[in-house]
Write a protein that binds this DNA or RNA. Sequence first.
DNA 1: TTAATCATGTAACACGTTACATGATTGC
DNA 2: GCAATCATGTAACGTGTTACATGATTAA
Lengths: 184, 184
Amino acid sequence: MSLKYGILGLLSYGPMTGYELNRAFHASLAFFWKATMSQVYRELKQMEQKGWVSATTIIQHNGKPNKKEYTLTQEGREAFVRWLSGPVVDSDLEVRSAFLMKIFFSAQNSPMINRENLHRFKEISRKQLSALQQETAIQEYGQKIQDKRSVTYWELTRQFGERYYQLCVEWAEMALATVEDQGQ
Amino acid sequence: MSLKYGILGLLSYGPMTGYELNRAFHASLAFFWKATMSQVYRELKQMEQKGWVSATTIIQHNGKPNKKEYTLTQEGREAFVRWLSGPVVDSDLEVRSAFLMKIFFSAQNSPMINRENLHRFKEISRKQLSALQQETAIQEYGQKIQDKRSVTYWELTRQFGERYYQLCVEWAEMALATVEDQGQ
DNA sequence: TTAATCATGTAACACGTTACATGATTGC
DNA sequence: GCAATCATGTAACGTGTTACATGATTAA
């Protein structure tokens, strides 16, 4: 559901190709929404049929393959605004964690494997945290497009991510201590 | 991917019907994994074909519909243990948040709607937090089944949830202050 | 010479969501 | 009388994942 609106949102800054949309996704929305190339192309096809975006083929020379640039239509912009201004519902907050599923059943695992898994979780979280802290794309874009209001909101999502991974690291330390304490 | 293992994990505590599995899901795993009835029935059918679970029909009198009780087979238990003892991978930590997607683009929204959305997010998070704090299922089960080791791990997932929703509430307060500060 | 980048997709499968169907019993 | 609980599912659709296909250019 949200992938559609992620694409519309990115196109609201200006026209882009599927390939560029994919890069933009990875550079900015990846912390809270992952998308693959084939998904992006499929959504673009569907949205073109709906009339939310329109495509223009750009012929390239120098041996590079032709591009299809997508532009937001009036209906597309309206659909985006309807979603954006619509209310926040319970399901927008849903959490899904394969890792916690594993932890839930981990009493049936060997203590050694549990310690390893918790350590690995902590390390991955730490890496994600420092990646988000060193994130400069927001500042760069902000200086380029001179849109102070956008930067505020982009920065809020980044800060959520920072706090989240901070939590993961601290929880992992607590969990490791608990598991050791119990002599497991 | 994880729904399968959630079902196998619950069946590792003893045989259950699809209906009971659904209730168990809502009572224990719901914070980090949501499942619907039809999904549970579909997975059970697939896993029966794979030979991971076996079904026994229990004829009921007193007007109630017949039940099908599912039991973990040896192969099912092996598949579960393979998953449980397998390494934690990056994708096990993936975050997906429709709410943050909306915040990311919220510079294009009216300031009033943004304040409303942040307030609503804070309220939902607060409710989830107090629901998790008042959660007693873990203690009850623990006393019933006398499995101290399981309780430790169940409790770790609950604590992750508590910390997570605490973070949400605090972040929302910070975000509201930021948005007000900017005169938006 | 090998991998990465640019650029488009298709096909098949897996998983998640929503609506529908049946029908007795129990509590408000 | 109406909603909830017990208990099973099917069907259709929507979304996410993985593998495959093409083919030139550029940097290590």
